[in-house]
Simulated scan of single mutants.
Amino acid sequence: MAAAPASSASSADEVIVTSGLTKRFGRVTAVDGVDLRVPAGVRFGLLGPNGSGKTTLVRMLLGLVHPTSGSMEVLGRAMPRHAGRVLPQIGALVESPAAWANLSGRANLRLLDAAGPGGRRRDRRARVEHALEQVGLGGVDRRPVRTYSLGMRQRLGIAAALLRAPRLLLLDEPTNGLDPRGITEMRALFTQLNAAGTTVVLSSHLLGEVEALCTRIGVMDAGRLVLAQDLAALRAPTGRVLLRTPDPAAAVALLDGRVEARADGRDGALLTVRHDDPGALNRELVAHGVPVTGLSTQRRSLEQVVLEVTGAGSDRIERAGAAGWGVPR
Results as ranks from 00 to 15, higher is better:
T215A: 03
G138Y: 11
V145D: 15
V94K: 09
I183A: 07
A131Y: 05
V259S: 10
L163Y: 06
A251L: 13
A161V: 13
A40F: 05
G289S: 15
S11K: 03
R283N: 13
T22E: 11
S314Q: 13
N176A: 09
S8Y: 00
R262G: 02
E95N: 06
G119Y: 12
V42I: 07
A131V: 08
L57E: 11
G257E: 10
G48M: 12
L227M: 06
A12G: 14
S104E: 14
S8Q: 03
R283F: 11
L111P: 11
R59W: 03
P278T: 04
P180Y: 05
M60T: 00
M79K: 04
L270W: 10
L234T: 00
E211Y: 01
L62M: 13
A195Q: 10
G268R: 02
R240T: 02
P144I: 14
L47I: 00
R244M: 12
H130P: 14
S7P: 01
L255V: 07
G51I: 01
P291F: 09
P39E: 09
A160W: 05
S11Y: 02
G26E: 01
R37E: 09
A222T: 04
L307C: 01
E185D: 15
L213Y: 01
A40P: 05
L271T: 07
A165W: 14
V306G: 00
D247I: 14
D315H: 00
R181D: 15
T68Q: 12
H288E: 09
D315V: 02
Q192V: 01
L307T: 06
R329W: 00
A196P: 09
A115T: 00
M72K: 07
G208W: 05
S69P: 02
G33M: 09
Q89R: 15
G326K: 06
T68W: 09
G76Q: 05
Q154A: 12
V42F: 03
L254K: 01
V38G: 03
V306F: 14
G136E: 15
L285P: 00
V58A: 14
L36W: 13
D264S: 04
M79V: 06
G136W: 14
N108K: 09
V201R: 07
N176L: 13
R153N: 07
A30K: 11
L57P: 01
D267S: 11
G105Y: 11
A2R: 04
A3E: 11
T310L: 04
G53D: 07
I16H: 07
A233M: 02
G51L: 12
S203A: 13
R299Y: 11
E209H: 14
S301L: 10
V241M: 08
R153S: 12
E129A: 14
Q154H: 14
Q192H: 08
L170H: 08
I317N: 07
L307N: 02
V86M: 08
A228V: 03
F25I: 15
L57C: 04
E73N: 02
